[in-house]
Write a protein that binds this DNA or RNA. Structure first.
Lengths: 110, 110
DNA sequence: GATATTGTTCGTAATTTTGCGAACAACGAA
DNA sequence: TTCGTTGTTCGCAAAATTACGAACAATATC
C-alpha cells in the first residue's frame, strides 16, 4: 500500500498541532504567560521581559496572532496585545481532551 | 538596556515549550493519539496510519522519545512504542496550569 | 546458511524557523 | 514642522525541520 493513498490528518489533529506549534518556543510561552497574567499588554513591556531583539519579538507576536491565540490592536503610539479568550478556551479544551484520552488499562504496553 | 543582560527563560517555560514543540506536528499528534488509545503499539501499525514514509515516521518517533513523551523498546523483530505515562502526566499538568493561569478580570484588555 | 520481515540510519534536498540590525512608518509632542 | 517614541517590515544568515529513497542491521523462519 502506498503512503499517498492514506488519509490526511484529521482537522482536530491539525488544529491541536497548530496550537502546540505556536506554543513550541520559550519566548512565545513567556509572552502568553505575561499576557495571561495581565502584567501589561503593550509591546514595549513584553519586549522588556524577553532576552531577544524587538524585531524578533514582533515576529513571535505575529505567529501567536496567526495561530489565533492573541490579538493585536494599535493604540497610538503603542500596540496592545491581548489573549484571544475564545480561542484560548478552545485550545484549553483541545489539550484537556487530548491528555485525558489516555486509557488506564494498557494491554499492549505491559 | 541591552537584551543580553536580561534573564534567560524559566525552566518551566522551557519545559512547557519543549512539550509543545514535540506536539507541534499533526503526524506526532496522530502518533500520540494512536498510542494513547491503545490501538496498537508497534511501529508497523503506526506507520500504516500515517500518510508519510517509514523513515519519516521513525524520525517523528525519535523526536517524541527525545521530548520524553514516549518510550521505545525492541521486541524482535518489531519495535514497541508506549506513552511515557509519568511524563505524560507531567505535560498534562504543565498545560493545565498554563491555561488555567488566565485571569478573569482584565484591566488592560478591556 | 539463505531469505524475508521489521525499523533505523544515512545522505540529500527543500522549506521553515529563529534571530539580528537597519530602515521605515505612524503618531504625539515640542 | 521637527523631533522623539513606538513597533513593523526588510534583507540577510544560520540553523532546524520535514521528507524521501536507499542502504543497512537485526532477527525470525525456512
Amino acid at each position: 500500500m502506498n503512503c499517498c493513498e492514506k488519509q490526511e490528518y484529521t482537522i482536530d489533529n491539525e488544529q491541536l498541532a497548530r496550537f502546540a506549534k505556536a506554543m513550541g518556543h520559550p519566548a512565545r510561552i513567556s509572552i502568553l504567560h505575561f499576557l495571561a497574567n495581565l502584567d501589561s499588554c503593550y509591546f514595549g513591556d513584553i519586549h522588556n521581559e524577553l532576552p531577544i531583539a524587538k524585531a524578533t519579538v514582533s515576529q513571535h507576536l505575529k505567529e501567536l496572532k496567526d495561530a489565533g491565540l492573541i490579538t493585536g490592536t494599535i493604540e497610538a503610539p503603542k500596540v496592545k496585545y491581548c489573549i484571544h479568550r475564545e480561542n484560548w478556551a478552545k485550545a484549553q479544551t483541545y489539550f484537556n481532551t487530548f491528555f485525558a484520552s489516555l486509557k488506564e488499562k494498557d494491554l499492549c504496553c505491559e
